[in-house]
Write a protein that binds this DNA or RNA. Structure first.
Length: 399
DNA sequence: AGTGCCGGGAT
DNA sequence: ATCCCGGCACT
């Protein structure tokens, strides 16, 4: 299925229609991994992707029969019709058909994650350029190719977790319909309705990978340990766990505007807006600041997911993120962000695993982490964290 | 020697 | 509570 969303996959798409009940059946013959995905969609559209199916390319498409298409080459016309069919199906229900291992994604996601969805073709998700479709003449092949390629590039960053920033009604209808996934990370407990979103949540917030790091392969399986599937009842009884401040602008900016606007003529998708990826680290940074005065240092397990909350407001603008008091904000270097991400998980390990010293002092050996003194130098002592200034255990760069 | 920070003192 | 520093452990 991984290739279905790609051009290679589209080459083998075939479809046929049944006139009487208005169902549109599309068959996608993938090239390799051939587990089929079937989705019965709300509007009576059914998708079938089966790598083993050998089916002739029957390209009758009564739903768009009234459309006059300018003459193009047969291949182009074929692709156009395919695209038109896909576009029509996406208009009514905007499916998110995931790769077979994640086929537990149910129509709820599709209904609620509407037009803004786009997923990585390379990771096996369908990509739908949904918001820009119309029954009018379908976009040219090159246009679609371009948009598909773009979605392939960008899609990974805009997954189903967008639902977190959508309307509450939409979320409700999603959560009531079936199970969900709950983050097991200590102090988080966020519930998401899609596995992909949960994985990404864990990967980004807890495992500390930046969005654009592209999901380094080594971490791909790691998220599985940190979430669990919960039933819908569990989800409903569970308190709405605070979602960390990850309603980043790009995830939400694509949501309502595009899907709710009347489908205009083909335009370049708006989904390619770049993501702001720097905020979380700085948020963690701020929250580790001055902890010496706030609580005992031993309890500082800098869990990146815990400190901030995501308001479930539909707009989900970047400005919706919790505003950091200006007095505490400061620029954070890349190295510091790295330290923040990497020092957090190791801290508890070093604490618990080394009862080496006889007396109760938890004094650790020289960590490799830079401290304020090293980072800023003695001459810029005013930029040290409070603890360092007081010759206490550094809170800005905890071991 | 340089650094991190505990323990304790000063305010 | 806040701020500072002597002095020790560690590299």
């Amino acid at each position: 299925m991984a290739a279905v969303g790609s051009r290679a996959g589209l080459d083998t798409i075939s479809m046929c229609t049944e006139g009487q009940d208005g169902l549109v059946y599309m068959q996608c013959c993938g090239q390799g991994e051939g587990v089929g995905v079937q989705k019965k969609l709300n509007a009576g559209t059914e998708w079938s992707a089966d790598g083993n199916a050998q089916q002739t390319n029957l390209l009758s498409f009564p739903r768009s029969s009234g459309v006059d298409l300018p003459y193009r080459s047969p291949e182009s016309v074929e692709m156009d019709e395919i695209m038109a069919a896909m576009v029509l199906t996406s208009l009514s229900c905007s499916p998110v058909v995931q790769s077979p291992p994640q086929r537990d994604l149910l129509p709820g996601d599709m209904e609620c994650c509407g037009g803004e969805l786009s997923d990585s073709g390379s990771s096996g998700y369908w990509s739908w350029d949904h918001g820009n479709v119309s029954p009018a003449p379908s976009p040219s092949v090159t246009e679609m190719d371009r948009s598909l390629g773009q979605l392939t590039d960008e899609g990974l960053h805009m997954e189903l977790d967008q639902a977190a920033c959508e309307e509450p009604e939409a979320r409700r209808c999603k959560s009531m319909s079936r199970g969900a996934y709950r983050c097991l990370w200590p102090g988080c407990g966020k519930v998401l309705t899609s596995r992909v979103g949960m994985k990404r949540h864990i990967r980004i917030l807890h495992l500390g990978f930046l969005l654009n790091s592209g999901g380094s392969e080594r971490s791909h399986r790691e998220e599985d340990f940190y979430y669990t599937e919960v039933s819908s009842e569990d989800e409903e009884t569970a308190p709405p766990s605070p979602a960390p401040s990850f309603c980043s602008g790009a995830w939400t900016s694509c949501s309502s505007t595009q899907s709710q606007s009347t489908p205009g003529p083909q335009d370049a998708p708006v989904q390619s807006s770049p993501l702001s990826q720097s905020a979380p680290s700085s948020v963690w940074q701020i929250h580790t600041e001055h902890l010496y005065q706030a609580c005992a240092p031993i309890q500082v397990t800098v869990s990146p997911g815990s400190p901030t909350f995501c308001s479930w407001t539909p707009s989900g603008d970047v400005q919706q993120k919790p505003q950091i008091p200006a007095s505490r904000s400061r620029s954070v270097s890349v190295g510091e962000q790295w330290l923040q991400r990497n020092s957090a998980p190791t801290r508890s390990q070093t604490m618990s695993a080394s009862p080496s010293r006889g007396h109760c002092s938890f004094r650790k050996g020289r960590g490799e982490a830079k401290k304020c003194r090293k980072v800023y130098g003695v001459e810029r002592r005013d930029q040290w964290c409070t603890a360092c200034r007081w010759k206490k255990a550094c809170q800005r760069f905890p071991d």
